[in-house]
Design a binder for these strands. Sequence first.
DNA 1: GCGACGCTTCGTCGGCCGCCGAACCGTCGC
DNA 2: GCGACGGTTCGGCGGCCGACGAAGCGTCGC
Lengths: 248, 248
Amino acid sequence: MEEAQALADQAALLADRTRATFCLALLDGRAWTAGELAREAKVAVSTASEQLDRLVGGGLLTEHRQGRHRYLRLAGPETAAVIEMIAAAGKRTDERPRTMAAAHRQRNLRFARTCYDHLAGVAGVALADGLIGNGLIDNHNGLVLTGPGRTALSEAGIETAPDTQRPVLRECIDWTERRPHLAGAIGAAICRHAFGAGWIERIGSGRAVRVTPAGVRDLERYLGVVIDPAERERSAAAPAVPAGARRP
Amino acid sequence: MEEAQALADQAALLADRTRATFCLALLDGRAWTAGELAREAKVAVSTASEQLDRLVGGGLLTEHRQGRHRYLRLAGPETAAVIEMIAAAGKRTDERPRTMAAAHRQRNLRFARTCYDHLAGVAGVALADGLIGNGLIDNHNGLVLTGPGRTALSEAGIETAPDTQRPVLRECIDWTERRPHLAGAIGAAICRHAFGAGWIERIGSGRAVRVTPAGVRDLERYLGVVIDPAERERSAAAPAVPAGARRP
DNA sequence: GCGACGCTTCGTCGGCCGCCGAACCGTCGC
DNA sequence: GCGACGGTTCGGCGGCCGACGAAGCGTCGC
């Protein structure tokens, strides 16, 4: 009944190419202006303005007006997770890239990217595995930063005091790797610091990032995590995951 | 670009009251016929037939034709998770039930229900917590059934051999409790056996289930898990969870 | 065989929705 | 002040999409 209507309304927010483009762009966790988003989606600013109203009204986006600018960002990490999940569900058919440039772009994206406000991809998963293997993070009862972990992060210059009431550390399933990586306040702090310290930098305007030599060095030095850039070359093909447990 | 189109197409499958009704009904994990679904959504069978084509074509549903019947079910656990996630995202405004009957229904649903093919709700979370506390399930490195756990489940009559290649045991965030419960092949096996052995039974035609006295007894006897039916009375109000980490 | 039944296909209608351009409003810079 | 600029509002257009009924097809039961 009206529960169905609510579900339909919620889904309808993403069921449009223009609005979907907005949300995918905003998945990088940054705030965009209305005009930037209009250009990104190649629509008139008037169109963008109306569609953004709907997304804000539906609770997917939050806005922040400042002067003559209207800044928009995703409402929160859960929103980003929903969008990633639906997008991943549509990726059943792991289509192969058609051109060399596309293959190159896909390889970059698979290797390292931002997932809303934290790190994902092969490198993101490796980081999570490394910190758990090191004992800097304990996964015995949920994910918890250990004493040594807190020390190591502090020494690396990463703030470990949660500034909000969001979960400090939580898993986020990576929908290309199908493995968990680090989200939550700490995950975001690590990502923020990695940008600030030049450990990673964006490739072009998308969500793909590159791990810099300094990043490889400092990640090993401070966190004891080894990221092998050569791994990037091997992150080409999709793992052949069946499209859900089919039943006869 | 076309990634946005794919996302929009995927979301569009759910962005319709009729199709949403179908999917919500199918969340119970059972197979429904096309006619049943048409009646559920109060549309002509011709309409249902067409919409079901789209859902099957989009990969959300699988069909199974037998005689003059067309059985439909959700394509898999991931699909159910996506649907639950979007529905939960729309539930931001935790509206209070208006009538006594609605409050009663909500209480039942919050206490125990099926989440596609496994158990959720307060009871589902309690089951997960209990098995982990008991040491029957180990959560040190993902969720793994321990030796004693395998023995206990066998003695209870629950098959522990995975029959498919789906993850044996995995967490599934419960979107009313915001706590993990047991999904995966084992989670489904437990649920299946709980129905078969009369531990739980459906209330009406929805997803709500009741834990029978026999269920309470056997869950404690075989699995060492205590489910307190009185807890049902306290599962009325929604926990006041903020609608995502808003940013200033 | 025959009707009853479950489902599908087709044609059609109505409404919603996304898009644009034009006009307008507020902000910024000189 | 003025123009430039970002954004919003409004009216209108076009297309898509979901709804239905009627006709048709295959299956089941007698």
